[in-house]
Amino acid sequence: MPDGAAPVLDVRGLKTVFRTRGGEVHAVNSVSFHLQPGELLGVVGESGSGKSVTMMSLIGLLPSPPADVRDGQVLLEGRDLLRITPEALRSVRGAEVGFVFQDPMTSLNPVFTVGDQIMEPLRTHLGMTRAQAETRAAELLDLVGIPDARKRLKSYPHQFSGGMRQRVMIAIALACDPKVLIADEPTTALDVTIQAQILELVRDLRSKLGMAIVWITHDLGVIAGIADRVMVMYAGQVVEQAPVKELFANPRHPYTRALLKTIPSNAGARGDRLQVIQGQPPILGAAPTACPFRARCRHAFDRCARENPARRPVGRGHDVACHWTPEGADA
């Protein structure tokens, strides 16, 4: 561990495979990462790089079949979530780990009031009475910045705007005071101004409540503002991981560098075309035996086709899975 304290979440060698009609899809390939208490870990990567599948594998949210979490450990305060009973895992979901999804328009049940939906985990996990749960639900709505909370408990999801619904989702995820909050692209579906408000809310809640957060996004610009540490994913692997300042100052993986170039910068002259990374991320029919990025990599050389690079430390809390070094290829 880079920092002394024990991590709240420690994931080791996680492998998730989808069994589809067209064969296997290796969506998560030996992913390891950890999360310190109170830390905000940003997870970035193009769409399809395995961010969501990784996080849903942690708490058994993927439907099986087709998903099969094959290998690894998911240690939540030392307890391996992949090796506990379904009932025990259920009492972790929503209680110790909160989840916020991408699309607030469809993530709430349209036929139940938001009050009912916030109260559900309170009553299930904390055994609250209806009255207690109602009071707590109103507090939660107030906490996430929904005015007139008591009254709004009786509203249905369609009576809220997208941003407000995402606030409700956050209230649900935080209902039982989880140790870990996983937010899977929570602002992607929202307008830019609403995005900023939600980011501000999460920053605020984090300082109030002190839970650890995993924040998934494909937007490095968002990450720069809120994360302590960043993990870059590609083809179901972690290709680089570093404290946020270090990553932006000293990106090592060609993929990370390419991603950074896609951020629209204020300094860039108008008319400067945004850079895009050429090509598509691969869909893996088997666990990769070569570097999955090599086809799109400017620096690829023969070793990249022979051997999938392991993560190696390159600085304090900074590691990268790449054979290439900026000083020159170390073949």
Binding site: L61, R90, A95, L108, P110, F112, P121, I172
Partner: peptide, 22 residues
Amino acid sequence: GQDYVRTARAKGMSERTVLLKH
């Protein structure tokens, strides 16, 4: 197949509640 079903599961609701309520 709807997203809210995933939300219900993520909240730790039992399969019974997911199926027979949501």
